[in-house]
């Protein structure tokens, strides 16, 4: 039992908790921008998957991981734009459009992957992002694996959380976004362009979800495979609600899920007579329990999911 709690194991668990949280965290922060502006973004899974594929393909073609990251961000943003056309301009049902995006991206990424790389061949691979070497800092118990054993995308994700907090809670931009999501009609009367705000938030949200997907192919593995996101976009939606659409709340929720996911694998190695199925359920049960406790305090904007129509002023 004690050897399971040694430094290597504990360090591995902490590092894994962060690593498994990052793609979910990025997508959830992206979803936060969309939802704070009043657009329900069910399409996070599809945006992640597109970012995952485009990031990989671009990195493979260019030989540069940075190009891959930028391509994933652009691809995710463009898909955010597509959601914007349907949800903001046309005023379609946002749930239906989001699900359609998710289903479409499974086919689109699979099709283009086979178009570029051939079918039934050994998957191409790239050298993925490696952890930054911080020397002795990385060896500090608990602190080392928590803060100093990660790759550049992890630090970028943590920086994005801070920037998201600044934008949403320490700037007029954040006020404008919140106004568009809470009371779009009132925002319009104050001279705010609600459709533009929503479009920009969907662009930002898509870009971050795309970056979250890129983490899976460019950082976690160095390869791409069909449906690689494995439902992480939907988990991100849950983390977004769990974190009450607040950047640091989302960070805490994502880390909690990441820790539960990492723990689920590691508790199987403990000499406890717990049925495997209970351990496999752990991250999801934990999410449901915390969501149930937090029910009614989700911080959802009042106009979330409702299409906004500009009112024509009546001429006297």
């Amino acid at each position: 039992m004690m050897d399971l709690l040694n430094n290597a194991v504990l360090a591995g668990f902490i590092a894994a908790s962060v690593r498994m949280a990052i793609p979910i965290l990025l997508a959830a922060i992206g979803g936060m921008f969309s939802e704070k502006s009043g657009v329900l973004n069910i399409g996070l899974e599809g945006m992640m998957l597109l970012g995952c594929f485009v990031g990989f393909a671009a990195a493979y073609a260019s030989g540069s991981l940075l190009v891959g990251v930028l391509a994933a961000i652009v691809a995710g943003a463009l898909l955010g734009l597509v959601l914007g056309v349907f949800a903001v301009t046309i005023g379609s049902n946002q749930v239906v459009v989001g699900i359609a995006i998710n289903l479409l991206m499974v086919g689109v990424t699979g099709f283009f992957f086979r178009l570029f790389f051939g079918s039934g061949t050994s998957s191409p691979r790239i050298t993925n992002f490696q952890p930054i070497d911080f020397g002795v800092l990385g060896q500090i118990p608990i602190i080392g694996p928590l803060l100093f054993q990660h790759d550049p995308l992890t630090y970028l994700a943590l920086l994005i959380v801070v920037l998201a907090w600044v934008v949403m809670h320490r700037s007029t931009v954040g006020l404008a976004i919140s106004a568009a999501g809470e009371h779009p009609e009132a925002a319009e009367t104050l001279g705010l362009n609600v459709p533009r705000i929503r479009y920009l938030c969907l662009l930002a949200g898509g870009a971050l979800a795309g970056l979250g997907g890129a983490f899976l192919s460019l950082s976690a593995t160095g390869l791409f495979i069909d449906n690689m996101t494995s439902g992480r976009g939907y988990i991100a939606l849950a983390m977004l609600i769990l974190g009450r659409r607040y950047p640091f709340g989302i960070l805490a929720a994502a880390l909690l899920f990441g820790a539960a996911d990492a723990l689920q694998l590691r508790t199987q190695l403990l000499p406890w007579n717990i049925p495997l199925q209970f351990l496999l359920m752990l991250p999801y049960v934990l999410t449901i329990v915390v969501l149930a406790i937090a029910a009614g305090r989700t911080g959802a904007p009042a106009a979330l999911g409702a299409p906004f129509r500009r009112h024509k002023s009546d001429g006297a």
Partner: peptide, 20 residues
């Protein structure tokens, strides 16, 4: 890992085992 294919999870399982 409760999946036929989840590269990120498979990789983490490998890391957890190597730590042991």
């Amino acid at each position: 890992v409760d999946s036929w294919f989840d590269p990120a999870k498979e990789a983490d399982a490998a890391r957890a085992l190597i730590d042991q």
